[in-house]
Design a protein around this nucleic acid. Structure first.
Length: 797
DNA sequence: AGCACCTGTCATCAT
DNA sequence: GAATGATGACAGGTG
């Protein structure tokens, strides 16, 4: 019964997590408290205790059965509560694709050996290992390449062989776990339960195929005869690249010493850096155009018939059998680039098609996205999710995360295996890192289409995705370029991050003030005297008396409304340009500066009391002088107190000459004159301050616009750069094929063909082609019989 | 009450 | 040197 409860509880929680991942909110408490009393009875037990639900401890405590289910442990109680909260919070995450990745890794970290501690430099084994496991378990013979012999870079059998046991070097993270076989067996039951629950989600039964799982289990238990292979495979695992013995191995470090570009099969997995390095080695691009030809004596990991010829249809010389896998790698890179382009195009399309993205539409995208291998596997969110939750038995989707993609997905090296179900920080870090897998993932809109309640991504998020993708593209491009070291790439990445930091969060779309606010703002200014005010510089410096007068006139129209002050707030003439400013969100202050003066309130002395009356009418409907003074500005009150015979507005806005004439016409005391000058000074300064602030805002807005423009330009340039790189690559391929053809036809005096491994073609500036030995004098010394021989040959282009 | 924001005001500098 | 504008800083008001 305890086991059943445990399974059921864990299954329910995992199912809840799955639902949360796909956007379906599940209120566990509701089910536990109200809906299903028997369920609650089963899960919680008759005595309450959430303590039974501790699957988060299972992976740490080997089996998790050591704790009595009825034990009332406060800490465990809160742990369980926290877990439930995490479950609830999962559906609030807005990056489902990332969640999917995380879930994958999480489960794999539990069942697959964590090789993080033994990964060789440049090879990503943490994240990629788990995915690799998924892929290789089910690798088709064509993909496995080589009749069961472990030939892939990360040989899955090697990984599997270590599943049941502990990692050879000791898994520091999960070293305490031992009963993997038992857990696998239990997982089988759990999977069946989950499958019955998930069948409505469209999960195929094959996802939970027991036979497949048995196969996994068998693979996890290496037979004695396989132990040696397993060890070798472990070695290969450490090396990251299965070099098939052709690569010399350092006796001390065990690391392979690549002396030639390793031959890559379609199943070979490399990290991004490794792939780039190999690509670079394969296609050097120095000043002196030299196109090395792969060594022919290197045994190919995958035979030619197993690797479908690339679309280039290059005529490979017979002495270069390894060129084909090499080209295969090239083809894969081209695919990757094409995929990225496709992704870039799909970013926009998926947004518009988010609502009705059927499996038919999602399938080509997915197949194109992950279709680095020949077998196009239909992919949808359900399948992926199930696979994510149960990677050990998912054998039908080897191409979903092809090894290339896995390896390309450079995730944080060590952190991924520790991902807990609720660790969103790692999710973010994964997403933020150079995770090309995330780039290749199909848009969540299409993938989540099978879930009816899955929300579609909003446009801002799509924009962010696009920007992120473009950043990734930039990094990849730079990495693909010659002379770009990893440090430089990371530096660029920081640059990109800083760029994003520059962003003023334009994705946010705060509620922009309505146009009515703008339109009515002129009324708010209620200054009318200065007909000669320019629209730009004029500011309504209204006095209380003026406002009051306006109110009296306005009363017949409709009078002052309580909402008046709110409706007539923002006075910027073009408020739409402030949409991008989040700080303007919720602003409802009276920005009456920069408002074109309205002529609707002619200057009349009898209008000078309206403001106070307006305000007071709202409250008491009986304006008093106190209230009027209260709602007047200080200068207005002072002016009234000093019995200044003209309005403050005049004081402030009149030109100097007129102002002096006005002062001269009236016989004013010194105190009055001083006050008038102060009023004028303060009023002008007030307008100046308002203009200054307006300019500040405009400056910020212009800067933001400039940033956006620059980002657009950057994206466009990156796209162009990608196209250029692709063109260059094609030219390189063409040159390589021509070079191969030349070598296939060249013969020395004795009629022997030139070995491409010993000679290379050098192209002179005058169009001549020279055959030079590789390595210069060294090669010449080693091959005295084949003295460097220069041949002039008509270059054919 | 605390906070963020707006607005007015002052001081200061530049024109 | 006065007038004016620009701007940083500060304080008070407001939601």
């Amino acid at each position: 019964m305890l086991y059943l409860k445990k399974y059921f509880t864990e299954g329910l929680i995992q199912f809840t997590i799955l639902l949360s991942l796909i956007g379906v909110r599940v209120d566990v408490d509701t089910y536990l408290s109200n809906q299903l009393p028997p369920l609650r009875e089963i899960i919680l037990g008759p005595s309450s205790a959430y303590t039974q639900t501790q699957f988060h401890n299972l992976r740490n405590t080997l089996d998790g059965y050591g704790i009595h289910p009825k034990s009332v442990d406060l800490d465990q109680f809160f742990t369980t509560r926290r877990l439930l909260n995490e479950v609830r919070q999962l559906d609030r995450l807005s990056v489902p694709s990332t969640e999917l990745n995380t879930w994958l890794v999480h489960r794999d970290s539990e069942t697959v050996v964590s090789a993080g501690g033994q990964s060789s430099p440049g090879i990503t084994l943490d994240n990629g290992a788990g995915l690799e496991d998924i892929n290789n378990i089910d690798a088709t013979p064509a993909m496995r390449g080589g009749g069961g012999a472990p030939e892939s870079t990360y040989d899955l059998n090697a990984a599997d062989s270590s599943l049941g046991a502990v990692a050879p070097d000791g898994n520091q993270e999960q070293g305490s776990r031992g009963g993997n076989d038992d857990l696998t067996k239990e997982d089988i039951d759990l999977i069946d339960i989950l499958w019955r629950q998930d069948i409505d989600l469209g999960a195929g039964r094959e996802v939970f195929s027991y036979s497949n799982r048995q196969k996994d289990t068998e693979e996890e238990k290496p037979s004695p005869q396989d132990s040696k292979d397993a060890n070798d495979e472990q070695e290969s695992w450490r090396n990251g690249i299965n070099l098939q013995g052709s690569q010399p191995v350092d006796g001390e470090t065990g690391e392979s010493i690549p002396e030639q570009p390793p031959v890559l099969g379609s199943q070979t997995s490399l990290s991004l850096q490794e792939c780039l390095r190999l690509l670079e080695a394969t296609f050097p691009f120095g000043e002196e155009a030299e196109f090395p030809v792969p060594v022919g004596n290197q045994e190919a990991s995958i035979s030619n018939e197993e690797v479908p010829s690339t679309s280039q249809g290059l005529a490979l010389a017979p002495q270069m059998p390894a060129a084909e896998p090499q080209l295969d790698l090239e083809q894969q890179w081209q695919d990757i680039m094409a995929i990225m382009e496709l992704q870039a195009m799909d970013m926009n399309n998926s947004t518009s098609n988010s609502g009705n993205a059927s499996s038919g539409t999602a399938e080509p995208t997915a197949a194109g996205t992950f279709g680095l291998s020949e077998r196009a596997t239909p992919i949808n969110q359900d399948v992926s999710l199930h696979q994510a939750s149960l990677p050990s038995c998912s054998q039908d989707f080897p191409q979903i995360f092809s090894p290339q993609l896995d390896s390309v997905g450079v995730a944080p090296r060590t952190g991924m295996l520790r991902l807990s179900s609720g660790n969103s920080t790692n999710i973010n870090s994964t997403f933020g890192a150079t995770n090309l897998t995330g780039v290749f993932l199909p848009p969540i809109n299409s993938s989540s289409s099978n879930v009816t309640s899955a929300p579609s991504l909003p446009d801002p998020f799509t924009t962010l995705l696009e920007e992120s993708m473009l950043d990734e593209i930039s990094l990849l491009d730079l990495a693909m370029e010659e002379g770009f070291s990893q440090a430089q790439a990371s530096q660029l990445e920081e640059e990109l991050d800083s760029d994003s930091g520059l962003s003023l969060d334009s994705s946010r779309s705060p509620a922009s003030p309505s146009s009515s606010e703008t339109s009515c703002s002129s009324a708010a200014s209620s200054s009318s005297t200065s007909a000669n005010f320019s629209e730009e510089g004029a500011v309504g410096y209204s006095t209380d008396s003026e406002a009051a007068a306006a109110e009296t006139e306005e009363g017949a129209v409709g009078g002052y409304q309580p909402e008046y002050s709110k409706l007539c707030r923002m006075s910027f003439q073009d408020l739409s340009q402030f949409n991008g400013l989040p700080q303007l969100d919720g602003i409802s202050h009276n920005h009456t500066y920069n408002v074109p003066l309205s002529s609707s309130f002619p200057e009349r002395p009898d209008l000078l009391l309206s403001a106070g009356k307006k305000a007071s009418r709202d409250k008491k409907l009986q304006p008093s002088q106190d209230l009027l003074d209260k709602h007047s500005s200080r200068d207005e009150r002072r002016a009234r107190a000093m019995k200044i015979p003209f309005s403050n507005e005049k004081i402030v806005n009149l030109p100097v000459e007129e102002f002096n004439e006005l002062l001269a016409k009236h016989h004013l005391s010194e105190a009055q004159l001083a006050l008038i000058r102060d009023i004028r000074r303060r009023g002008k300064n007030k307008m100046a301050a308002q203009n200054c602030r307006k300019r500040k805002l405009e400056t910020i807005i212009n800067l933001e616009q400039g940033v956006q423009d620059l980002r657009r330009d950057k994206a466009r340039l990156l796209k162009e750069k990608m196209e250029f790189i692709r063109s260059i690559r094609q030219l390189k391929q063409k040159m390589q094929s021509l070079c191969q053809e030349v070598f296939s036809q060249l013969r020395d005096e004795e009629g022997r063909p030139f070995s491409p491994s010993e000679y290379c073609l050098q192209y002179g500036a005058d169009g001549s082609v020279l055959i030079a030995p590789r390595g210069g004098a060294a090669a010449a010394a080693q091959q005295p019989s084949r003295k460097p021989e220069k041949k002039q040959k008509d270059k054919k282009k």
